[in-house]
Write a protein that binds this DNA or RNA. Structure first.
Lengths: 342, 342
DNA sequence: TTTAGCACTCTAACGACGAGAGTGCTAAAA
DNA sequence: TTTTAGCACTCTCGTCGTTAGAGTGCTAAA
């Protein structure tokens, strides 16, 4: 596979641009006219022919314009795309929206998902941040109602697990407070894995609490993360490539199937990586149902504290520049939030 | 609009059945053959003609079979449908699945949404249960990390609000405990509306807590509920009426737009109500985007404690009998859970 | 190396056509 | 009076042939 000449690169770039814009095959003549190229359509045709041989373009049928191939998109994203950063005005608008939120992670994640979906016209996905290396800081039990008690586990990072315990019999707040103090002293500084080292006589209540904490451990261990925030799923349906609805279903099934989605979001170390943003084109890897789609992913958070993943899923014919900037920008916002809050 | 004869009712019923099954226009001859009717197709045709005049059937074009109209479905649901209850085996299977869950509301709601979607082949919707008449029982502040504190508000029903407060400066757990006790004494038994009656000098911390509680009040006041659990959205795409994807988008947009969805789910006092289950056909009311759809809704929970809504959204050509039984059954399961747990 | 010109190919749109499905009507049968 | 057989009529759907137009690939000249 030869190096492409500057002119070939230019033409490839324009074709990708134009196709992303119009969703229609792009013809040599059209290109020359629209971009006032200083060459004839015949010349463009020759170059297009080369690009086709090299595998960057294809034509749906013999006498139609060209369309980028998967390789074409990949070359575009990796080599041609100028790294547009978001216009200042938009940054400000978005920052403003976040500043009007409460300091609530959920709300921020929802807002981020909404903005991401609206601005990219694709489906947005965000996993809740997953705390790193969890150590227990404090345990508090609170009587709520009858035989119910709320157990709160505060971790050193500052994040919280909680659960409602159903007790054998009602227990007063005093007793619960005493137990809280005891447990806090025993487990402070330990991580959840060291729970199993604690043995000895336990009341029913204590067993209850222990059982829950172990449960919490198992859960935080095996699930890469918990909730997933999404928005803009219907944006996909608006794209012409999904008008047949069978293709759309395939891609969307993946969004509903949590386990598949988790797999996808935990993808890492992929070919095209730009400043922490990963681009998966045409379901590269083994995402058969995503052959028509591209995915842009980025981690966010702070390595020492907690990390999550955010990204967009859209048709391969996607505004990569804008989407990548958007993902990167929102990743930054959420990271800052985490650092500040935790 | 005259009364329908028994035979007319029978034929209407069969047509609705058949259309729900086949998604295709149903012809007089087809009906006679498939169901071994003891009359000729001509007779059926005459009756179909009457049913068409009465507005229960229509034909897509002059020489095609009949298809139920909105009114036809409504008559079917209201008058013709025999009230099938779920087979015992299925009840057991489902009960078993729930029994294997932890006592966690979230998990139950998710499971219910999944089962509902799979069994009805439609999209399922469940709102988290919303507590009724909230009175404060206890307030607890817990130091978490630096200037962060977790504030927990326990209501008499037993449900919990919580929030992470960011304080002006670090505050020790002792101080927080003192304040917790003070606030608990002042507000115990009050509902959130009486917060505003408390005035007088307050520390920055106290103001902080108060502000949050008022906030919580406003939120629980205006939002009918919080989270919404869904599943099976892609089931809609599989239905032939949504193969054109434009219609599908309209309906799905509604699922993404939280505010619209809230409106829909809080619909109540609708025409067709069967044992607490409400059936909305063809977006009756003013749901223009749901013209092709039907919605089956039921409240669940316990009037004194907390209630939520669950339901399914599918094409008008939907298996009403099965869906209604399913909704009713799951509504019962969730109600029991709430009564038991709270 | 570029470009004008032209032949060639393929799609998309259109209309014609026939087959088939299903009805509505009429007149006979029950 | 009700049911049914028979038949003409209507409308859709798939197929085919045709055409217009878009766009290419190639060739030969600039």
């Amino acid at each position: 596979m030869k190096e492409l000449s500057a002119r070939q690169r230019r033409i490839l770039s324009l074709i990708v641009h134009e196709y992303i814009y119009s969703a229609d095959t792009v013809a040599s003549k059209h290109l020359v006219e629209k971009y006032h190229l200083s060459m004839s359509s015949a010349t463009v045709r020759n170059e297009m022919s080369v690009l086709t041989d090299e595998g960057y373009l294809k034509q749906p049928h013999t006498s139609a314009g060209r369309v980028p191939t998967e390789a074409g998109y990949r070359y575009f994203v990796g080599q041609l795309m100028q790294d547009t950063s978001l216009p200042e005005a938009m940054r400000r608008t978005i920052n403003h929206q976040f500043s009007q939120m409460h300091n609530d992670m959920r709300q921020w994640l929802e807002l981020a998902a909404t903005i991401l979906a609206n601005e990219t016209h694709a489906a947005s996905l965000i996993t809740a941040p997953q705390p790193v290396e969890a150590r227990i800081k404090h345990i508090q039990l609170i009587a709520t109602h009858g035989r119910q008690a709320l157990a709160v586990l505060v971790m050193e990072g500052g994040q919280i697990h909680q659960h409602i315990l159903t007790l054998e019999e009602p227990v007063s707040q005093e007793q619960l407070s005493i137990l809280s103090t005891k447990f806090s002293q025993i487990f402070a500084g330990k991580n959840l894995h060291s729970l199993s080292q604690y043995h000895g006589p336990m009341s029913q209540l204590e067993k209850n609490v222990m059982a829950w904490m172990e449960d919490e451990l198992v859960r935080s261990d095996q699930l890469p993360t918990g909730e997933i925030y999404m928005d803009g799923i219907t944006n996909m349906l608006a794209e012409p490539e999904f008008s047949d609805s069978e293709e759309a279903r395939k891609a969307m099934r993946l969004l509903e199937e949590r386990s598949l989605l988790q797999d996808l979001l935990s993808q890492t170390a992929l070919p095209d990586t730009i400043g922490g943003v990963q681009v998966l084109i045409g379901g590269e890897g083994n995402w058969n149902d995503l052959r028509q789609c591209s995915v842009i992913l980025s981690k966010y958070g702070s390595p020492g504290i907690a990390t999550g993943t955010l990204g967009v899923l859209g048709p391969m014919r996607m505004a990569y520049g804008r989407s990548i900037s958007m993902v990167r920008f929102l990743s930054g916002i959420l990271s800052d939030f985490i650092v500040e809050q935790w």
